[in-house]
């Protein structure tokens, strides 16, 4: 992923660096260059990990992050071992198909790579990571579907934002961080924030969009603009600043109150060091943690622009933002 990131962000007048955990930092200097605004979107995606092989050569596996296990059966996957190996997800026992079970979870499933145990052991090792084989494709109405849009959509938002910031003046340094290991416990953002100690931060992630089965619990809609979060995890002035920037620049947006901590990098960034004023913007997404995650490209572009205009509108001294 790192080389891909550098490929995308190299086009900007910015410094790129990387830390031991794998976080990537893209630093774009501001005019005053006194204080730093952190943007954070996570690099990792949910996946699978090889645990052991049985005597027929089938590969058993566990999850990395909260993958939607119901959707795994009959998927094509790639085991990233000594070399990339294609496999298909199959059932431990066909008998279960006739049982009353509605879906199959991780313990019912195996990966078939078409080899005997002897050959499998040479090619695959316990601990090898498995991803789902899937190319993104474009749908009608500027929507796209694919794997890992959680949170490559957020990474794209950061690219759009930096692109905008090449055209408009901004006083403060912007450090866009592509964080690691969000899906297993917000780990990269935790150490990354400690390294750069920003004045303020905005995390970018995805959020559930309305589908038929979300009933009244989800009001966020695909294509209706980026989502601005508010609640105890979010600094009220960053929330209102983002809202003002959206209104002034006629960018459509949606509001999402979250009562507790958000399940995003914003959660650990806020509590880093002595505390950091933190905001959160999200891209509406359907079918989260499956290989057919669906988003609207318009939301991504709008979200990047919103962040750029917000950063450009920040006062000269960010310290005034830290008061309630």
């Amino acid at each position: 992923m790192t080389s891909l990131i550098q490929g995308v962000f190299n086009q900007f007048p910015a410094e790129i660096s990387k830390d031991f955990m794998g976080n990537n930092y893209v630093i774009k200097k501001g005019i005053k260059s006194k204080q730093a605004v952190m943007l954070a979107a996570h690099l990792d995606e949910i996946g699978l990990i090889v645990t052991y092989f049985d005597n027929l050569g089938f590969v058993h596996f566990s999850t990395v992050g909260g993958i939607d296990q119901r959707t795994l059966l009959n998927q094509e996957v790639i085991i990233h071992g000594r070399e990339d190996i294609n496999g298909v997800v199959s059932l431990v026992s066909r008998e279960k198909l006739t049982a009353s079970k509605k879906s199959f979870l991780i313990d019912d499933l195996i990966i078939d790579i078409g080899y005997s145990q002897e050959k499998t052991v040479q090619l695959v090792k316990p601990g090898d990571v498995v991803s789902i084989k899937r190319e993104p494709f474009t749908m009608l109405n500027q929507n796209i579907a694919g794997k890992a849009l959680d949170d490559r959509a957020g990474i794209t938002v950061m690219a759009v934002c930096l692109n905008e910031l090449c055209r408009i003046d901004h006083k403060h340094d912007v450090i866009a961080v592509a964080t690691v290991q969000e899906e297993v416990g917000l780990r990269g953002a935790f150490t990354g924030t400690d390294r750069i100690k920003p004045e303020i931060a905005v995390a970018i992630d995805v959020t559930h969009a309305q589908t038929l089965d979300t009933k009244a619990q989800v009001n966020i809609q695909l294509g209706k603009g980026p989502v601005i979060t508010l609640g105890p995890n979010i600094h009220p002035r960053i929330y209102s600043g983002l809202q003002t920037a959206a209104k002034e620049n006629r960018i459509p947006y949606q509001i999402q109150p979250v009562a507790g901590p958000t399940g995003t990098d914003a959660r650990v960034i806020q509590l880093s060091g002595q505390g950091i004023p933190t905001g959160l913007v999200s891209i509406p997404l359907r079918y989260m943690h499956t290989s057919v995650e669906t988003i609207s490209v318009l939301d991504v572009v709008d979200c990047g622009k919103l962040l750029a205009y917000y950063i450009a509108s920040l006062p000269e001294d960010l310290e005034e933002l830290s008061c309630f």
Binding site: D19, F20, M21, R187, F190, T191, G192, D194, R195
Partner: peptide
């Protein structure tokens, strides 16, 4: 331990 400060190998 691995999440201490800026991260520990």
């Amino acid at each position: 331990v691995h999440l201490t400060k800026g991260g520990v190998p």
